[in-house]
Design a protein around this nucleic acid. Sequence first.
DNA 1: TAGTGGTCTAGACCACTTC
DNA 2: AAGTGGTCTAGACCACTAA
Lengths: 234, 234
Amino acid sequence: MGNVIYIDIVNDIKSQIQNGLLGPGDVILPEYELSEKYGVSRTTLRKSLALLVSEGYIYTIPGKGNYVCRPARKKYQLDFDEVESLNLELEDIHLIDVKVIEPRKQLMDKLKISHQDKVIRVRKVFQAGGRKVEFVVIYLPYEKGSPIVEDVINFANFYNVMEKRNMHFQVTKSLNIQVVQANKTLEEFLDVDPEESLFLVSQEIFSADKTKPISYNEFYIRTDVIQLNGETDL
Amino acid sequence: MGNVIYIDIVNDIKSQIQNGLLGPGDVILPEYELSEKYGVSRTTLRKSLALLVSEGYIYTIPGKGNYVCRPARKKYQLDFDEVESLNLELEDIHLIDVKVIEPRKQLMDKLKISHQDKVIRVRKVFQAGGRKVEFVVIYLPYEKGSPIVEDVINFANFYNVMEKRNMHFQVTKSLNIQVVQANKTLEEFLDVDPEESLFLVSQEIFSADKTKPISYNEFYIRTDVIQLNGETDL
DNA sequence: TAGTGGTCTAGACCACTTC
DNA sequence: AAGTGGTCTAGACCACTAA
C-alpha cells in the first residue's frame, strides 16, 4: 500500500509467487487482463512486469506470455580488484621484468593469437605489511609501438590504466579463482615456502563485444592477505 | 541504426561516453531536450536512460539531472553452489551429526541471537572421486519443532530445501571466500593432512529483507576439486 | 485469425532542487 | 517560480505464436 502503484503490483505478484499461489512455470494472466485487474494502464502494468523480470521472478516469451521462474539463486555479486581486494594497504610495487615472449599454447588460446605472434609479459610484485604478498603476471598481445604497455607497467591495476586512457566501459572481464601450489618462480619472487598454497586469480580482459582479447593476467596472492566477498543481487 | 529507437539512443549515448565526449560527472541534457533532439517522446527517451542506468553508465538525481558515471567495473557475477560448483560428480553425502549447541560469540553475531538461544549444528561430508572432498557445517537458530532441520539434513544444498518448501526468492545470501589451514576436526572428517590448505566458503542466508538470519554455513572444500568463475555483467 | 508481448506517442500531474 | 526527474494514462501499430 505504498504510494507508487507499480511497486504495489510488483509486491503483490511477488507474494503470490512466494505463497505458492503462482508456481514455477505457471503462466501469468495476459498483460491487458492484469492491467484491468489492477485498474491501471497497460504501460504501468508492464513497468511492474519489467521489474519482476529484472529481479528474476518471471520471464517473458514474446507472443506467448509471462511465466514464473523456478528459484535458482546461485548468482553472487563479487568484487575483485588486484589491489583493493587485499586486506593490507599496498606499500610498494616492484617491477620484475618486461619481456617479449613467444606464447605457449594456453596463452595463444587465451589471447586468440597464432604461433608467429609475440606477447609482452610484465611481471610485478606487490609488497604490503613488510613482505611480498602478490605476484602479478600480465600478458599483452604485442603491437608495435603500442603505448598501453607503459601504462600497464606504471599503474597498479587495469582500472587506473583505463581511467588514464579514457577507456570507459569498453571492456568485459572474467575471473577464475583457484588455489595452487607454489612453484620455483613463485618461491623466488614471492619468498614463499616450497609448495605453499596460493590464491590464483586469473583474469581475462576483452573488448566490450567479447571478440578481441586485450589482456590475460594472473594474480598469485598469499592466502592470508585476501578474502573475497559476494552477495546475491536483487 | 537498428529498428528499435530506444536501443539506438542507448548506443549513441554510450559511444559519446566512450569517446570522451561525455566525461564522468558530466550532466546529460535534460530529458525533454534529449527527447526533442532525438525526435522521440519523453517516455521512449526515458526508457533509454533507464537502460543506461541499469548498465552502470549513468546515474540519476531526481530534481537535478542525469550524470555520467565514473568507470568502476570491479563487479563480477559469481556462481556458487555447495554441490554444483565442485569439479567432480558428487557420489555420497554422509551425515556426521546433528546437535543442539550453545553458540559462541561469532555465531551469536552471525545469527543475531543471544546467549540463551540454542543453535542446531548439522555436519556433513561430501564424497566424490572416491574420497572425501567437502566438509559442511550448517548452523540454524533453534526453534522448537521447526521442520526445516529435517530438510537441511536430507537435502544436498539449500536450493533443494527451498524448492521443497516452496520458498521462492525469499532469501538473500552472502559469501565469504578464503583459504584456511586444516585443523583437527577437518583432519578427522575430511581425511586431509595436517595444515593442508582448504577453500573455506562461508555463507550467510537471510530473509529477503536482510533482517532475519536463517542460516550460517561453512563449506570446507579441497582446493583441487573447485574453482570459481566470475564474469563482468552488463 | 485471434491472442500475446514489444514499441511508441502526446500529454498530464506530482515531488524535489535551485534560485 | 522555474526546471528537473518520477509516475501514469489511453490508445496506437507491429511482430510473433498458436490454432
